[in-house]
Design a protein around this nucleic acid. Structure first.
Length: 497
RNA sequence: GGCGGCGUAGCCAAGUGGCUAAGGCAGAGGUCUGCAAAACCUUUAUUCGGCGGUUCGAGUCCGCCCGCCGCCUCCA
């Protein structure tokens, strides 16, 4: 068994066979640094991070490159609008991107090149395309001659005549064919410029990725990815430029993720239905957002709605609560029931991931194991006494869940999110003023506050004043604090969203 | 117009022609509890947009129709 991944180029699932045995070299198109990232970016970022992690899990060394486009029309326009330099705009949004990645708990790629650090490679690539007759220069601009590259349209399955018929491209008199695209753009006054054989200018968008990918990964590498909207023209053009210049195959495997939609419509700025990563992570934990995104297959569309992320958060809590219960197990000679099914879950997880990164199915394997472990836990005396062997088996189960979760980029541990904590804290403060005013000063943090309220509640319970006891419990629950009454006393925990 | 995708339970969603159609959320009943919560157990699609066809057998393949979406211009 090996990983089979859908290849856009061949329209079928194909086994990923690295060119260099044991090592996968992958390039993923990164962001253009002119605005904050939204949920669509988050999905793409997550999908390829999961791919990378799964490859590592399968024993491959992985080299993943994700670029930054730090010079282009949109950046220049943003600079003009806001009175900053193009460089300041790009630097700023790259920093914001990195901050978002940290909040979303995704690590950086192995290499994160900026386009402007690789201009000489882009110039060289353009020169070699000119030398091969696949490009032509006009007044300081250089265009790729689409008709000169026979394979053009193979990735996106388009033929040039159809494209031309449907083309809504601005007619540029200087182009031989309307579909020819820029390799090099002559600088207008005030625009960023690098020296070149054709005069000062800057590289076109598509050539950036070709040049950086080949410089960092070699002329031929294993996998190239991005959102499905990049298939045409961006990736089509990358293939034409790269293979046109080298005569060698560029990327073997092309992987594209589907869109995030809002109420059946593509999320995009023109529609005005964009949710930034930043806003979403103010409301939801990274794990909940990830679980939501991984709940459907990466190639299909996914419809965003806040309730769905909340649902994912509830599902996630089941895993967290199980892990906490297992950590709290007490070893006892007369424990019970050994949990089984760890091996089966792992097998199903691998089978699912091998089948075109089917994270939804992989998650079902995890949740099935969660149910089995919970069931075994329920059969333990007081749900907490296990023999040494049983306790070890439970811990092995949790370790397996953590390991599988980790491949999916999930943390599956740790406390509640900061927003949840802040909301809980203010609710607790209000309850303290109402039920134990003398304790307000003595209970400065959440934990002390809840403990004081639980002590007050325990007093009420002893006095069989269930009205007060239940009111306190109900209002704590409303604040996200879940109280459980056990034979040994009451416990509490903060739920996440 | 060209190319591509989707339509599975109340909601989300997986499903590689063949045992009883994953999993999550929500709902109902039960166990536990002073009552709850959590957890577990049971339960919720004789059926996969519609109609035909291929096949011993189709959610899965083919055709047509209906509905939704995307790409063809910058876009994850």
């Amino acid at each position: 068994m090996a990983l089979r991944l859908y290849n856009t180029l061949t329209e079928r699932k194909e086994e990923l066979v690295p060119i260099a045995p044991g090592e996968v070299r992958m390039y993923v198109c990164g962001i253009t640094a002119y605005d904050l990232c939204h949920l669509g970016h988050a999905r793409s970022l997550l999908v390829f991070e999961v791919l990378r992690r799964y490859l590592a899990f399968r024993g491959y060394r992985v080299r993943m490159v994700r670029n930054f486009t730090d010079v282009d029309d949109k950046i220049i326009r943003k600079a003009q609008e806001t009175g900053r330099t193009w460089k300041a705009v790009a630097d700023h949004y790259i920093q914001e991107f990195q901050a978002d990645m940290a909040r979303f708990e995704l690590p950086p790629a192995d290499m994160e090149p900026r386009a402007t650090d690789h201009v000489p490679a882009m110039v060289a690539l353009t020169e070699s395309l000119l030398a091969r007759g696949l490009a032509y220069a006009v007044d300081g601009d250089v265009y790729f001659r689409v008709r000169g590259f026979p394979g053009y349209g193979r990735l996106s399955r388009r033929n040039l005549d159809d494209l031309r018929a449907g083309a809504r491209v601005e007619v540029d008199e200087r182009k031989e064919d309307p579909l020819d695209f820029s390799l090099w753009k002559r600088a207008k006054p005030g625009e960023p410029a690098w020296e070149s054989p054709w005069g000062p200018g800057r590289p076109g968008w598509h050539i950036e990725c070709s040049a950086m990918a080949m410089e960092l990964l070699g002329e031929s590498f294993d996998l190239h990815g991005g959102g499905e909207d990049l298939i045409f023209p961006h990736h089509e053009n990358e293939i034409a430029q790269s293979e046109g210049a080298t005569g060698k195959p560029f990327a073997r495997h092309w992987v594209h993720n589907g869109f995030v939609r809002i109420e059946q419509e593509k999320m995009s700025k023109s529609v005005g239905n964009v949710f930034t990563i930043r806003d979403l992570l103010g409301k939801f934990s990274p794990d909940a957002l990830k679980l939501f995104l991984l709940g459907s297959h990466y190639r299909g569309p996914i419809d965003y709605a806040p309730e769905k992320v909340e649902e994912a958060g509830r599902a996630l809590d089941r895993i967290r609560l199980l892990a906490e219960s297992v950590e709290a197990l007490e070893e006892h000679p007369r424990g019970g029931a050994l949990p089984a099914a760890v091996g089966a879950a792992r097998g199903e997880f691998v089978a699912a991931m091998d089948d075109d990164l089917n994270t939804a199915r992989a998650l079902s394997a995890i949740f099935t194991l969660v149910r089995h472990l919970n069931g075994a836990l329920d059969r333990l005396p007081e749900r907490r006494r296990a023999t040494a062997a049983a306790a070890a088996a439970f811990r092995e189960g949790i370790a397996a869940i953590r390991e599988m979760g980790q491949v999916l980029g999930l943390r599956l541990s740790g406390g509640a999110t900061r927003p949840a904590e802040e909301a809980a804290l203010s609710a607790v403060a209000a309850l303290l003023r109402e039920y134990c005013p003398e304790q307000v000063a003595a209970a400065p943090d959440l934990s002390a506050g809840v403990e004081a309220l639980l002590a007050r509640r325990e007093g009420a319970r002893r006095a069989r004043d269930f009205t007060v006891a239940d009111a306190i419990r109900r209002r704590l629950a409303a604040a996200g604090i879940e109280v459980a009454d056990r034979p040994q006393g009451s416990t509490w925990r903060l739920r996440t969203k």
